Simulated assay, not measured.
Amino acid sequence: MTEVHETETGARARTRRAIVEAAVRELAHDAATSLGQIADAAGVGRTTLHRYFPDRAALLDAVGSETVARLTEAHARARLDDGDARTALLRLCPEYLLLGDLLTLFFTGVVPDTVLDEGGAAPLAALVARGHREGSIDRELDVDWVVGVVWAQLYLAWATLREGQAARHDIVPMLVRTVDKAVAP
């Protein structure tokens, strides 16, 4: 009995994840994408989608939760507490770039600012403030300004990648160099 329950739970988790991932992809391409289009992209029926997410708001909440989880993972991979804050910031930029279509959802407002504040802006602002205290980030640049510079450069990097104008291995060094030159004391 336990094995069957675990299999059902695993299948439910995979289906839910497929729906959320499809929502991220589809909403990044068109914020007005219908739930039917998301269900099709996830390879499930609309009834199945509604079993997991009764309405668009519930699905967007799940996308917001996924956003916070992926931002948290990016922070962990970047090892924000290792070394000076500027070096950690430069490790964080490529990790944020890996968020892919979630970046589009930030930039287009599909994911509300409150989600971004909870998962991304607060740790990023704390990192910049630490950089100010230790002198690794230019103290003349306001914390909010530096956070804005980072998001602006990520927007440029992601838009360039998404439009196929350059490869990731070309974009990352330019992104890191630009942010480094912008925030260095």
Rank of each mutant, 00 (worst) to 15 (best):
M1G: 11
G10Y: 09
R12V: 09
R14T: 11
T15Q: 08
V20N: 01
E21T: 10
A22K: 00
A23Y: 07
R25T: 03
E26L: 09
G36F: 08
Q37E: 14
Q37N: 12
A39M: 06
D40E: 13
A42F: 06
T47F: 00
T47G: 06
H50D: 05
R51T: 08
P54T: 14
P54K: 09
D55C: 03
L59F: 13
L59Q: 13
V63Q: 15
E66D: 13
T67Y: 11
A69P: 09
L71R: 03
T72A: 06
T72L: 01
E73V: 12
A76M: 08
R77E: 13
R77H: 13
A78D: 05
L80C: 05
A85G: 07
R86E: 05
C93F: 02
P94I: 11
Y96D: 02
Y96G: 00
F107V: 01
V111E: 07
D113H: 12
T114R: 12
T114P: 01
V115P: 00
D117K: 07
A125T: 08
A126E: 15
V128M: 02
V128Y: 01
A129W: 06
R130P: 00
R130T: 05
G131F: 09
R133W: 03
D138A: 14
D138S: 11
R139V: 10
V143W: 09
V146Y: 02
V149Y: 06
V150R: 01
A157E: 02
T160W: 08
R162D: 12
R162L: 07
E163I: 01
E163H: 14
Q165M: 15
A166V: 10
V172K: 04
L175H: 01
R177D: 12
R177P: 02
T178Q: 14
K181E: 09
V183T: 14
